[in-house]
C-alpha cells in the first residue's frame, strides 16, 4: 500500500471519528436547549427574550444532527470508494507486472486489454473520489456555518441571560455550554476539512 493510499484511508476514517464526536456535542446542545426552555419558562417575563432563543438552539441542534447523519452516510460511501480504488490500483499494478513478465509469451498481447481496462477503472475511481470529496467538503462547510450560528446565539443568550435576575447563572450556563459545543463542532469539522482538502478536485 502506497503512502498516498494509506493517508487516503486515514483521512476517510478520521471523518467518521471526528463526526461521531460532533454528533455527541450536537445532542448535548439539544439537551441544553430543552434545559434552557424549562428555565426560561420558570423565569417567565424575566427571561422573555430568552425564550425564542431556546427554539433557535433546538432547531440548530436538530439540523446539525441531520447534517452529520447524512455526512456519515456519505463518508461510508467515500470509504467504499477508497477500498475500490485501492483494489483497482493493485489490479492495475499486478496486470502491468504480469504483462511485463510475460515477455515474448505467445499470448502476451492478450493481456493488453485487461491492463487498459484496469487503468481506466482505476482512473475512474480516482476522479470519482475527488468529486465526492468536493461534495463532502461542501456539506462540512454547512456544519461549520451551523457552528458559527450557534456561537452568535450563545452571545445573544449571554445578553438575554444578564437581564434574567435570579435566573442569570442558570441561563449563562446554558449560553456557555452552547458556545463550548459550537467551538468543539467547529474544531472537529475543521480537522475533517483539512484532512480532506488535499484530495479536493482541482
Amino acid at each position: 500500500m502506497t503512502n498516498q493510499t494509506k493517508s487516503q484511508f486515514i483521512a476517510v476514517a478520521s471523518i467518521t471519528s471526528e463526526l461521531s464526536a460532533v454528533m455527541v456535542v450536537a445532542k448535548e446542545i439539544s439537551l441544553a436547549a430543552a434545559n434552557a426552555k424549562a428555565i426560561a419558562f420558570r423565569a417567565g417575563d424575566k427571561a422573555k427574550g430568552f425564550q425564542p432563543i431556546t427554539d433557535f438552539i433546538n432547531e440548530l441542534a436538530k439540523e446539525t444532527i441531520e447534517l452529520v447523519t447524512n455526512i456519515n452516510i456519505y463518508a461510508l460511501v467515500l470509504y467504499r470508494l477508497t477500498v475500490n480504488e485501492f483494489q483497482k490500483t493493485v489490479a492495475y499494478n499486478k496486470f502491468e507486472l504480469a504483462s511485463k513478465m510475460a515477455g515474448d509469451a505467445v499470448y502476451a498481447k492478450s493481456m493488453q486489454e485487461p491492463v487498459e481496462h484496469a487503468k481506466l477503472s482505476m482512473q475512474d475511481c480516482q476522479r470519482q473520489f475527488k468529486r465526492d470529496v468536493s461534495q463532502l467538503l461542501g456539506q462540512l462547510e454547512a456544519v461549520m456555518h451551523h457552528a458559527r450560528a450557534a456561537r452568535v446565539i450563545a452571545a445573544n443568550s449571554r445578553i438575554e441571560a444578564s437581564q434574567a435576575g435570579e435566573y442569570l447563572q442558570s441561563l449563562q450556563a446554558v449560553a456557555e455550554s452552547v458556545d463550548k459545543a459550537a467551538h468543539t463542532i467547529h474544531d472537529n469539522v475543521q480537522r475533517c476539512r483539512i484532512a480532506l482538502s488535499i484530495y479536493r478536485n482541482s
Partner: peptide, 10 residues
C-alpha cells in the same frame, strides 16, 4: 498469469 500466457490467451 505471465506463465499461463505461454499457453492460452486471457
Amino acid at each position: 498469469m505471465a506463465a499461463v500466457l505461454h499457453h492460452a490467451p486471457v
